[in-house]
Write a protein that binds this DNA or RNA. Structure first.
Length: 337
RNA sequence: GCCUCGGUAGCUCAGCUGGUAGAGCAAGGGACUGAAAAUCCCUGUGUCGGUGGUUCAAGUCCACUCUGAGGCA
């Protein structure tokens, strides 16, 4: 039986996904599902570059504003479950679903056969483990090596966040993380829920960096400071995942008088560039992405058409890719000179 | 015009009494299994301002020269 198809648009931050996704949705009779770990939160609007109602041009957007800032429990697993429900609903209404976003893990949760465990994060246990680690540095990784050597070998001892989670799953379920069915590199496409057509948007690095600079300045003009000041006044815990997003974290530091305004702004720009780099690294390894270079000058109209054509091309699973004349060459066009 | 102190990685600088260079930041590459805009790992990219000299050997010593800062006139 033929699997249902979903369409995805991915790429580094500030590359221009939003604009193109809306053009595509209009042409394709589609709803948009966001795959953005920060746009999830209500109240994080300007800094997360959440498309305004006007920008959405009447296209329905899902998986935006679905969690509260104070909610520290949102996770990929929840995202995956809710996004799958959205897709089913959209399909039931006879429309297509376009997933657009830059959160690599969220994307993979939809395109790869990732079956997350049913073990929720446990704060008390985490605190205990952190205390243990502080007392005896390295102990956590050592303990993990004994109980789940496969996972331990994969994780660097300093990557406490992941080591912690592995131990958490182990203690709470009695089952090693490595024993859960996962295929992160997606060699088993047959087991994915949908047939995914993924388009990647990329551009020349220097150009993207310049756009990031402009975008941050634009956010400031549009009231990012006021948005963050409100959060500061609300006295949220600063360890909340929502408040560790780019822009929020750095400006909160400024409001707490830990840095001056200009350095905070420079930090946002630098961290955003680094983030874009990490996104490239993430998406680069997914051989199923067809890349489209939108470095200006290039007609956005024609890119939208090309992507739509690619989406509607029947190329059989894992078969040849559209855009052999260049679009699939890879995410970066060239290294920085 | 004279004197002093500088000129070494993209930036700020370190390099003892000669043995063809190294830190921080920036940058680049990578990982990623319920926090992922998070978290973590790896990497030095250099006509040591230029030319000539002394020496087996010069970033280091000498001469000249270019250049920056300051001081004295």
């Amino acid at each position: 039986m033929q699997k249902e198809e979903i369409y995805l648009l991915v790429g580094p931050t500030a590359v221009g996904k939003t604009d193109i996704s809306i053009q595509l949705a209009k042409r394709m009779n589609a709803d948009i599902i966001s795959a953005d770990s920060i746009q999830i939160y209500r109240g994080l609007d300007i800094g997360s570059a959440k498309p305004s109602m006007k920008e959405r041009e009447g296209i329905a957007h899902h998986m935006i504003d679905v969690a509260d800032i104070s909610d520290a429990t949102f996770s990929v697993a929840k995202y995956q479950e809710a996004a799958f429900a959205c897709i089913a609903d959209i399909h039931a209404r006879g429309k297509r679903a376009i997933v657009v976003g830059g959160s690599g893990l969220y994307i993979n949760a939809l395109t790869h056969p990732l079956h997350f465990t049913n073990i929720a994060g446990n704060d008390t246990l985490r605190k205990e483990l952190i205390a243990l680690e502080e007392e005896t540095p390295g102990i956590l990784h050592k303990n993990l090596s004994a109980a789940d050597p496969v996972t331990a070998a994969r994780l660097h001892p300093n990557d406490t966040k992941r080591v912690l989670r592995a131990l958490e799953v182990l203690k709470l379920s009695g089952k090693a993380l490595s024993a859960y069915e996962m295929d992160f590199v997606n060699t088993k496409q047959a087991e994915t829920r949908y047939r995914a057509k993924i388009a990647g948007l990329t551009m020349d690095r220097q150009t993207l960096y310049a756009r990031i600079e402009q975008r941050v300045d634009g956010m400031l003009e549009n009231g990012l400071l006021e948005e963050v000041e409100k959060l500061y006044n609300a006295e949220y815990s600063r360890s909340l995942p929502a408040l560790n997003g780019l822009g929020y974290k750095q400006l909160l530091r400024y409001y707490h008088q830990e840095t001056d305004k200009n350095s905070a702004i420079e930090d946002i720009k630098r961290e955003t560039r680094r983030f874009a780099k990490r996104q490239w690294t993430w998406f680069k390894r997914d051989a199923n992405i067809a890349w489209f270079d939108i470095t200006p000058p290039c007609e956005r109209e024609s890119i939208v058409e090309k992507i739509e054509t690619y989406f509607f091309t029947n190329d059989g699973e894992g078969d040849t890719k559209y855009g052999s004349e260049g679009e699939s060459a890879g995410p970066h066009t060239e290294p920085v000179a």
